[in-house]
Amino acid sequence: MPIDAAKALAAEPRSGPITWTTRDVQLYHLGIGAGIPATDPDELRYTLESRLHVLPSFATVAGAGSPGVISGLSVPGVDVDLAKVLHGGQSLEIHRPIPAAGTATAASRIAAVYDKGKAAVLVMRTEVADAQGPLWTNDAQIFVRGEGGWGGDRGPGTRPDPPTGDPDRTVERTVREDQALLYRLSGDWNPLHADPEFAKLAGFERPILHGLCTYGITLKAVVDTLLGGDVSRVRSYRTRFAGVVYPGETLRIRMWRDPDRVRVTVSAVERDDAPVLADTVVEHS
């Protein structure tokens, strides 16, 4: 069997240093659409080094996204066809605000392996800490089609109930035609997001936007709209990738406010509100 769950779970964490600078943070923010209008004081918090605040989703690319989802699968007990791999979801826990520049240690391991019958789900956990202590914990949920069925733990069986009633806020964000080309400079060089021929081979009419770019665009919208632009209020953020986004499309972001969390759905306006992100929750102070 290509996935040996016991072996994967027992493997030692892969640890290494990561570093980032204000330039990396600025580039990431530009890659998720910050800086429009360029002179808006609220946008300068994301783009001007003297005022720079770090959106927590930067954690997904800090240190050029190392270890990345694909490289993170190179562990004992995991030998899969990368063409069958899908990034199914992402969750992030922020232990304290991310500094605008820093050096830290990232430790990555397979934290869970679930048998979904027709697919296996690997939870790749990355824990990052600097000299002052823990910074963030990232969990990437990776679906591997065709690798289930060995009788293992199916994992969590329920998803949160979808929001009901009218959203408290709805905003739309236009994805620029060059958004994926800019975002990939933060470390995800998958040609699926840039090469039209590669995208067609993968079954798409043209290159698609990175799911983690949509993830960042959405968190920025929540912070700017409901959290007063205060990035330090974000405690955790999780989502399930429910569909693709094509550069040039418009994202419709609906938000339902609870006392200590915001529930969110994201859809593609031009494709009859086709779902993009689901089961999305931002927990905050």
Rank of each mutant, 00 (worst) to 15 (best):
P2Q: 05
A5T: 06
A6P: 03
E12W: 04
S15C: 11
R23M: 12
Q26H: 11
Q26N: 13
H29Y: 14
L30K: 02
I32C: 03
E43Y: 12
H53P: 00
L55P: 05
A59Q: 06
A59E: 07
A62W: 02
S66N: 11
D79Q: 13
D79I: 01
P99L: 09
G102H: 12
T105Q: 10
A111W: 05
D115P: 00
K118D: 12
K118N: 14
V121S: 05
Q132W: 06
T137H: 08
Q141S: 11
E147P: 02
E147V: 00
G152I: 00
P163T: 01
P163I: 01
T170Q: 14
V171K: 10
N190R: 07
L192P: 06
L192Y: 06
A194K: 11
F198Y: 15
E205F: 04
P207Q: 08
H210V: 05
L212Q: 05
T214S: 13
T218R: 11
K220A: 15
V222N: 11
L227G: 08
G228H: 12
D230M: 08
S232K: 12
V234D: 13
R238F: 03
R240Q: 04
L251N: 06
I253Y: 07
D279C: 10
T280L: 09
V281L: 14
H284G: 11
S285Q: 10
